[in-house]
C-alpha cells in the first residue's frame, strides 16, 4: 500500500509533545475557508500530478527513524496530518502499526470527518488525537467547511467514551469561529465529554495566503483581520474559567 504524501516536515514542535516529524497526507473531505494547507485538500487519483510523494510503509519508516534521536530526547514522535490522514485509512493503519511496533509515539491530526467504521478501526492505533473542532452550529459548519459536522461530533464522542488521549484544536477565525455563541457551544460540548479537557486555540494568521496564490486557489479570507492579543486572551479565559486546560498555539 502506498501513502500519498504532500510533505514531510522535520523538527515540528506544535503538533503534539516534543520534537516531532509531521507527515502531511494528501486529500481532505473539508474545504475550510481558512485552511493553511490548501494544497493538501485535493484528493489524489491514479493519474495525479507528480508533486505528491508516494511512500510505502517501509520507506516512510526509514524517514521516521532518521529522527529517532530527537524524538527520544524530547519525548516526541510522529504526527500524521494533512489534509485528512484518515482518508488513507489502510496506509495510515499500517504505518501506525509499524510505529507502535517500534515504540514510536504517534499522533493523528484529524478533522474527524470520516465514516464511523473507518474511525473506529483506527481509534486504538494512535497514542494521541489532535482533533479539530471548528463550529458547532451545523449550518455554519456547512458554510465555512463545506460539510456537515454530524460525523465529526459522533467520532469525537467515541474518543471520549474510549478514554483516548485527545487535544482539541480550535482555530479562532474572526467572524467565523470566534463568536460568543460558538465558544459557548464548544464549552458546553466539552463539558459533556468528561475525558477531554485539553484545548489548543489556534488564532488565525494570514501566513498561508501565499500558498493560495502559488497553487492558484481562490482565497476567501482577504478581508479578515487577525485577532488582537486581548481578544485571544479573553477567549482563552472563557475556556479556562469553564475548567478546561486551554493554551494558545500548539
Amino acid at each position: 500500500m502506498l501513502g500519498v504524501i504532500s510533505n514531510i516536515q522535520r523538527f515540528t514542535v506544535h503538533d503534539g509533545p516534543g520534537i516531532r516529524l509531521t507527515v502531511f497526507m494528501q486529500g481532505c473531505p473539508l474545504s475550510c475557508w481558512w485552511c493553511h494547507n490548501p494544497e493538501c485538500i485535493k484528493h489524489h487519483n491514479a493519474d495525479d500530478n507528480s508533486e505528491h510523494l508516494r511512500y510505502n510503509v517501509k520507506e516512510l519508516m526509514k524517514e521516521i527513524r532518521k529522527e529517532l534521536i530527537f524524538m527520544d530526547e524530547s519525548g516526541g514522535g510522529v504526527t500524521f496530518s494533512g489534509g485528512e490522514p484518515m482518508m488513507q485509512p489502510i496506509f495510515l493503519s499500517e504505518i501506525l502499526d509499524a510505529c507502535k511496533k517500534e515504540d514510536i509515539h504517534t499522533a493523528v491530526d484529524t478533522s474527524g470527518l470520516v465514516s464511523t467504521d473507518t474511525f473506529d478501526s483506527l481509534v486504538d492505533k494512535a497514542d494521541l488525537f489532535l482533533y479539530d473542532l471548528k463550529v458547532i452550529d451545523n449550518a455554519l459548519h456547512q458554510k465555512y467547511t463545506g460539510a456537515s459536522n454530524t460525523l465529526i461530533l459522533k467520532n469525537l464522542k467515541t474518543l471520549n467514551d474510549q478514554q483516548k488521549k485527545v487535544i482539541i484544536r480550535m482555530p479562532l477565525i474572526p467572524g467565523m469561529t470566534d463568536s460568543k455563541q460558538n465558544i459557548d457551544d464548544v464549552i458546553k460540548l466539552l463539558s459533556q465529554l468528561s475525558n477531554i479537557k485539553n484545548i489548543n486555540l489556534l488564532p488565525y494568521h494570514s501566513i498561508a495566503e501565499g500558498k493560495y496564490t502559488k497553487f492558484n486557489i481562490p482565497y476567501k479570507m482577504k478581508d479578515v483581520k487577525v485577532l488582537s492579543e486581548d481578544k485571544i486572551t479573553e477567549i482563552k479565559n472563557l475556556f479556562t474559567n469553564a475548567g478546561l486546560n486551554a493554551s494558545i498555539g500548539g
Partner: peptide
C-alpha cells in the same frame, strides 16, 4: 520556555551522536 527546552533537546541529541 518551550522553544528553549527544544533547542536544549536538539543540543543534547547532537551531543548523544
Amino acid at each position: 520556555d518551550k522553544g528553549i527546552a527544544q533547542v536544549a533537546q536538539l543540543v543534547r541529541s547532537y551531543f548523544k551522536l
